[in-house]
Amino acid sequence: MDRKTFIQKTTMGILLSIPAVSMLGCSGSDDNGNGVPDPDPDPTPTAKNCVENGTSASVSSAQNHTHTLTVSKEDVSAATTKTYDLSESANHIHQVTLEANDFQALKDNPNQSITKVSTTNSQHSHNVTVSCA
Rank of each mutant, 00 (worst) to 15 (best):
Ser125Asp: 14
Leu98Thr: 07
Ala133Leu: 07
Gln123Phe: 02
Thr83His: 12
Gly54Ile: 01
Thr66Leu: 12
Met12Gln: 13
Asp75Gly: 00
His92Lys: 12
Ala79Gln: 06
Thr129Gln: 13
Val71Glu: 08
Val96Trp: 14
Thr44Cys: 05
Asn53Arg: 13
Asn34Leu: 02
Asp38Phe: 05
Ser60Gln: 03
Gln95Thr: 08
Val128Trp: 13
Thr46Asn: 00
Gly13Phe: 14
Tyr84Ala: 09
Thr68Glu: 14
Pro39His: 09
His67Leu: 15
Asn32Ser: 11
Ala62Cys: 09
Ser122Cys: 02
Thr83Arg: 15
His94Tyr: 11
Gln123Cys: 00
Asp38Lys: 09
Asp102Ser: 04
His94Ile: 08
Thr70Met: 15
Lys4Gly: 10
Ser29Asp: 08
Glu88Gly: 03
Glu88Leu: 10
Glu74His: 04
Asp75Pro: 01
Ala105Ser: 11
Ile114Asp: 00
Gly35Asp: 05
Gly13Asp: 07
Asn101Phe: 09
Val128Gly: 04
Gln112Leu: 01
Thr119Gly: 03
Thr97Ala: 10
Lys82Ala: 13
Val21Met: 08
Ile18Asp: 11
Gln63Glu: 14
Ser29Tyr: 12
Leu98Gln: 09
Asn53Leu: 09
Met12His: 09
Thr46Gly: 01
Met12Glu: 10
Leu24Lys: 01
Leu86Tyr: 15
Val21Ser: 02
Ile114Tyr: 11
Cys50Val: 01
Gly28His: 05
Tyr84Ser: 11
Ala47Glu: 15
Asn101Thr: 12
Lys107Ile: 14
Lys48Ser: 05
Asp2Leu: 07
Tyr84Leu: 03
Val36Lys: 13
Glu99Asn: 06
Val59Phe: 11
Pro19Met: 05
Ala79Trp: 11
Val128His: 08
Cys132Tyr: 06
Asp2Trp: 02
Thr120Lys: 04
Tyr84Trp: 06
Leu106Tyr: 05
Ala90Cys: 05
Ser17Asn: 05
Cys26Lys: 02
Val59Asp: 14
Pro41Thr: 06
Ala20Ser: 11
Gly28Ala: 02
Gln63Asp: 09
Ser77Cys: 01
Val36Asn: 02
Ala133Ser: 15
Lys73Asp: 08
Pro110Ala: 08
Glu99Thr: 07
Glu52Cys: 00
Pro43Gln: 04
Phe103Leu: 10
Ala105Thr: 00
Ile14Trp: 01
Ser87Asp: 12
Pro19Trp: 00
Ser60Trp: 03
Lys4Trp: 02
Asn101Lys: 13
Ala133Val: 06
Cys50Tyr: 01
Val128Ser: 03
Thr46Glu: 10
Leu15Trp: 08
Glu88Asn: 08
Ser56Tyr: 13
Pro37Gly: 01
Thr83Asn: 15
Val96Asp: 13
Ser113His: 08
Lys73Val: 00
